[in-house]
Amino acid sequence: MALKPERGQFPPVLQTAMRFLPPPPLGMFLTHAVRRLSTQRPDLFERLGAYKRAQFIVDPVDLPYVFKLVPNGEHAFVEMLPKAKAPQGDAKITGPLIVLLGLIDGTYDGDAMFFSRDLVIEGDTDAVLALRNTMEEADLTPAELIGLNGQLRDVVDRCANSTLANLRKVLDAPQAG
């Protein structure tokens, strides 16, 4: 793996501890979030074109799990799997969790992260590019991802953004754009 060692990653002791914790039920939650997004923003899934049926493996290098994503609109699903059971998929995106989250909310530029080797992509580059450009357009905020609206959304986003910014500092993550 060509990732720069430990930059932006959880400390090794925390990574080890997470291996012994029961996995949170994130797959079902994220499946619901992506399907909800497909009804609210169908344009995003048009942007994916044929790649909405592709199988993306998102591998946070500092977590013991991978996420398998098929972003097929209302039939989309996200599955969280132990690393040992990760399928090959059509395309794989690997990086520290904090960098992957920064790509979703637009904190980081995907090209810059790739050139600096903070991010590794494998498999169908067309599919990765389609997903990356769609995520860019989605401009998702943390509150949007969990389906919040109104004033509560602003509060949650402010808290989440501040927490993530602090986490980036603590983990010595790449500088945000």
Partner: peptide, 10 residues
């Protein structure tokens, strides 16, 4: 044009 909004903005 292929770059993300973080890059564009900066």
């Amino acid at each position: 044009r292929q770059r993300g909004k973080a890059y564009i903005s900066q």
